[in-house]
Design a protein around this nucleic acid. Structure first.
Lengths: 139, 139
DNA sequence: TATTGTTATACTCTATAACTATA
DNA sequence: TATAGTTATAGAGTATAACAATA
């Protein structure tokens, strides 16, 4: 195969396609998130906090160091989106969304569902197929 | 719908699934890239440089500021993977892979194709279907 | 006057290590 | 002795603005 053909073939490879689709979806979501005045990580934290959770659990779910959650929690509080609350164990602090935080979570959730221009290119049946394939990949 | 059901439904939504699959693929690729001693961005640059390219074109393809390419080019040269070369226009500097760079590109390319554990969960037919759906999303 | 690349600088994101309080 | 969270600090990654050379 000549070089251009190799490149073309590579461009078709699944992993590259997944990356490109994900990047586009992320860009779309980032626009919505920026309109809300949040960073991507902050938005992820808000989405995670459907229910109050210990800070170390948030760290687990975001796959980041627990020390960084202090920073994120400070930012969430500064935005008025979440508060620290006492847990049963006095070492633990729960992070819980304020009413504003819950409202923000709704907005972000809607943006995540509807905002991705990529999924609009598919029919309902195709979306179903895609969803099944993706779920199988995560098993 | 009660809260846990809502969360479950959200977890199924396409955009979220795409993000999770992409994150897993990226983690897989990052492992291979780290074994090569490169950062993800550096690896992307190597993959882009199948042929010598002006630095500003690399910036376009990486979707980053042109000034940052100076930094990346310095790093690539420090790794012995690429060199700056003169272009026809004397303002332009071409970035081209060294033999080591080309070899690295092969390794990365192979890692990208084979390394993603996510795609292994699919049959050949399913991979074909997925590829077609993804391509349609990028059109 | 516009374009290419470079420099200096600064900002954001995130991790590491040492620390405190609690278990 | 182990766990939760905090603090201080440092590093990577990247952008902005001003600049030099060339077109």
């Amino acid at each position: 195969m000549s070089e251009p053909e190799v490149q073309f073939a590579e461009a078709q490879h699944l992993t590259g396609l997944i990356f490109r689709v994900a990047e586009r979806a992320k860009d779309d979501f980032a626009v919505a998130v920026a309109e809300c005045g949040l960073s991507l990580t902050l938005a992820r934290a808000v989405l995670i906090l459907g229910e109050p959770a210990p800070m170390h659990e948030v760290a687990d779910q975001l796959a980041c160091d627990p020390s960084y959650i202090t920073n994120l929690a400070d930012q969430l509080e500064a935005h008025g989106l979440a508060e620290r609350a006492a847990g049963t164990d006095r070492r633990v602090k729960l992070l819980q969304l304020t009413p504003e935080g819950l409202e923000m979570r709704e907005r972000l959730s809607a943006a995540l569902e509807e905002g991705a221009t990529v999924t609009r290119a598919l029919t309902a049946a195709q979306r179903t197929d895609l969803g099944e394939l993706l779920q199988q990949m995560l098993r």
